[in-house]
Amino acid sequence: MQRILDNPANVSAPFGDRFAHVARVDLDGGALLMLSGQVAVDDSGEVVAPGDITVQSERVFAIIGDILAAHGATFADVVHLRTFMTNLDDLPAYGVSRRGLFDGTPPPASTTVEVSRLFLPGAVLEVEVTAVLAGQR
């Protein structure tokens, strides 16, 4: 078993290098990817479209897609999502962005909770994912 903490070059570094974007655990016959929560920021770390759930959802999933791709994964490899939202009334708009990413039935396991705020002002959404890569080392 090998453990790798990574900040892929194709994604902006986390704030102050305080955490890794992804923890990868290589196991016999595959790998487990656990992504840190991602918020909608641009390459300079500024929140994209403060307060706009639709734009932020699209940006968050673009960042997640880039992190997955850096480890040879796609959204088809995602087995669980954990979503933190500042307003559950935004759930339908978030769902539209999310539904387009997962072709399988049923979609991945999921947890969604409302929180009073996120660590960056203007961010209304944070998403963590776990993915499993079969047959990769």
Results as ranks from 00 to 15, higher is better:
residue 21 H to N: 04
residue 78 V to E: 08
residue 133 L to Q: 09
residue 33 L to Y: 04
residue 94 Y to I: 00
residue 65 G to W: 03
residue 4 I to S: 10
residue 68 L to W: 08
residue 1 M to L: 12
residue 84 F to Q: 14
residue 111 T to S: 09
residue 89 D to M: 04
residue 89 D to N: 14
residue 34 M to S: 13
residue 107 P to E: 09
residue 63 I to W: 03
residue 85 M to W: 01
residue 108 P to C: 05
residue 81 L to P: 01
residue 40 A to K: 05
residue 33 L to D: 03
residue 100 G to A: 15
residue 59 R to T: 12
residue 26 D to T: 07
residue 81 L to F: 04
residue 124 V to W: 06
residue 26 D to G: 01
residue 115 V to E: 00
residue 3 R to H: 14
residue 26 D to I: 10
residue 78 V to P: 00
residue 8 P to F: 01
residue 129 V to F: 07
residue 134 A to V: 11
residue 51 G to P: 08
residue 76 A to D: 15
residue 67 I to A: 02
residue 7 N to M: 03
residue 74 T to F: 04
residue 60 V to I: 11
residue 10 N to G: 05
residue 114 E to K: 04
residue 28 D to P: 13
residue 133 L to A: 05
residue 131 A to G: 04
residue 104 G to H: 13
residue 40 A to L: 06
residue 32 L to K: 01
residue 59 R to C: 09
residue 60 V to C: 11
residue 95 G to L: 07
residue 32 L to D: 00
residue 46 E to S: 15
residue 70 A to P: 06
residue 54 T to P: 01
residue 106 P to M: 10
residue 41 V to S: 12
residue 75 F to K: 05
residue 111 T to N: 02
residue 101 L to F: 09
residue 50 P to C: 11
residue 75 F to W: 08
residue 121 P to R: 08
residue 105 T to F: 13
residue 103 D to I: 04
residue 18 R to P: 00
residue 134 A to P: 02
residue 113 V to M: 08
residue 27 L to A: 09
residue 65 G to N: 04
residue 36 S to A: 14
residue 57 S to K: 05
residue 33 L to I: 00
residue 119 F to K: 06
residue 7 N to H: 04
residue 47 V to R: 12
residue 93 A to T: 11
residue 7 N to E: 02
residue 34 M to E: 11
residue 39 V to D: 07
residue 120 L to G: 00
residue 66 D to T: 03
residue 56 Q to Y: 10
residue 88 L to H: 06
residue 133 L to S: 08
residue 126 E to Q: 13
residue 71 H to E: 11
residue 118 L to C: 03
residue 95 G to R: 11
residue 46 E to P: 00
residue 98 R to V: 05
residue 99 R to Q: 15
residue 123 A to I: 02
residue 23 A to D: 11
residue 44 S to V: 13
residue 66 D to L: 12
residue 65 G to R: 06
residue 33 L to M: 04
residue 8 P to D: 03
residue 94 Y to C: 05
residue 7 N to G: 01
residue 132 V to N: 03
residue 80 H to G: 03
residue 26 D to C: 10
residue 124 V to G: 09
residue 37 G to H: 04
residue 40 A to G: 06
residue 59 R to A: 13
residue 64 I to Q: 05
residue 65 G to E: 09
residue 92 P to S: 10
residue 135 G to R: 14
residue 10 N to V: 11
residue 49 A to H: 10
residue 67 I to R: 01
residue 5 L to C: 04
residue 107 P to L: 06
residue 2 Q to D: 14
residue 61 F to H: 15
residue 112 T to G: 00
residue 37 G to S: 09
residue 85 M to Q: 08
residue 75 F to N: 05
residue 85 M to Y: 03
residue 76 A to L: 08
residue 21 H to P: 00
residue 64 I to P: 06
residue 131 A to E: 02
residue 23 A to R: 10
residue 21 H to S: 03
residue 41 V to A: 09
residue 73 A to L: 07
residue 60 V to G: 01
residue 83 T to C: 14
residue 97 S to N: 13
residue 64 I to E: 01
residue 70 A to D: 06
residue 111 T to Y: 00
